[in-house]
Write a protein that binds this DNA or RNA. Structure first.
Lengths: 196, 196
DNA sequence: CCTTAGTTTCAAAGATTTTTGAAAGAACTA
DNA sequence: TAGTTCTTTCAAAAATCTTTGAAACTAAGG
């Protein structure tokens, strides 16, 4: 799948070329940007950085390489990798004659965001929707008549219903994007994008 | 805009009816859910709770009412309200013969999410795109020939370009949603939703 | 101009989240 | 089985983020 032994940056212990130094710098910047972004969206910075490193390097790395590259502890690396694996953003790989475990990040950007969408929907949106429905039940069934004409309760229910309706729409959009047949959305989105 | 003096929940110091207790409970639940959700998406829990309270109560509240209702300090309330006002999610209001300042949350759910989208785009996505472009520059112009045939640099650049392209697409989608003429997206989204 | 009611600010305290590192656990080899 | 190598776990430490509360500030009323 990847090219042969890859005559990569510094395979033969040669001194770094100008290009390989730029590459290193580019990778480091990407890692920082992604880490920063992750943390502003509620994802642990280190987890995002590990992901960024694996994505941008393109080929599998082992725990020691990741630790060294990001200057983090073994425990932290292991935990971030576990989370990334749970999300499905990172897969395990092995190299012949090397007992170490290697990790490879999904390389298809669309797939990356489909996975992120799927997981955030599952972990955050769906539970919120559940809770909102429970919350809605507290103030009675639709068009209820608890006492007689409790307009406060009615407008409360309207506000809840509008919010629930909106979030359900987002939820179903996420479904579209995530689904294997989600190419539909991909296409539609492309068209919309053009129609600026 | 709102109904008269509003014969609200407990205007005349009467004992709470069953319905008004349910209403209170429903509001509290909504506040908790929204606070929880905010914090999982990188928004301070209290700020999200203040927003939730103002949204679900529907009518303007003053700082003391918010402090009491959420059991938070004056400083915290003031800071959250400032942020919400900066975002544009909350407006100031005044009542005749009352020197206190009142705060009212935007009530249109679509508008709420348009605002959130606009602000997150402005504060988080756009800066990331800038940084990614700078990062891209580090490894030379498109189809560069830094040394000769540095395939590592080339594939690095490809990965960056794919990521940038995707985020730019999201960015322009966000534009569509945010724009006043964004009804287009609203519509398209509605159609897509149906086409499940 | 002074008083008073209300609001904002910000350093320190408190709470929460993240990282570390060492010990326990697994998996392989001889 | 014992030894070796690598991985995971988790309690404590560190870092980060949030809240508090009292002082500074602002504006309205007298």
């Amino acid at each position: 799948m990847t090219t042969p032994p890859s005559t990569g940056k510094r395979s033969s212990r040669s001194r770094p070329t100008r290009a390989s130094k730029a590459l290193r710098e580019g990778q480091n910047r990407f890692v920082s940007i992604w880490g920063e972004m992750g943390s502003s969206w509620g994802i642990p910075r280190t987890m995002a950085e590990v992901h960024a490193l694996l994505y941008i390097v393109g080929e599998p790395l082992n725990t020691d390489q990741i630790m060294e590259r990001l200057a983090i502890s073994r425990g932290s690396a292991s935990m971030s990798l576990k989370s990334l694996h749970d999300w499905g953003l990172v897969g395990r790989a092995h190299k012949r004659g090397d007992r170490k475990e290697y990790f490879r990040a999904e390389q298809d950007v669309w797939q990356v965001f489909r996975i992120i969408t799927r997981e955030r929907k599952r972990r955050e949106i769906d539970p919120v929707l559940m809770a909102l429905h429970d919350c809605r039940d507290v103030t009675g069934p639709r068009a209820a008549d608890l006492e007689s004409c409790e307009t406060d309760v009615e407008s409360h229910n309207d506000r809840l219903d509008r919010m629930i309706e909106f979030i359900e729409l987002i939820d179903s959009l996420a479904d579209q994007f995530v689904s294997p047949a989600g190419k539909g959305l991909q296409l539609a989105v492309g068209l919309l994008g053009k129609a600026v």
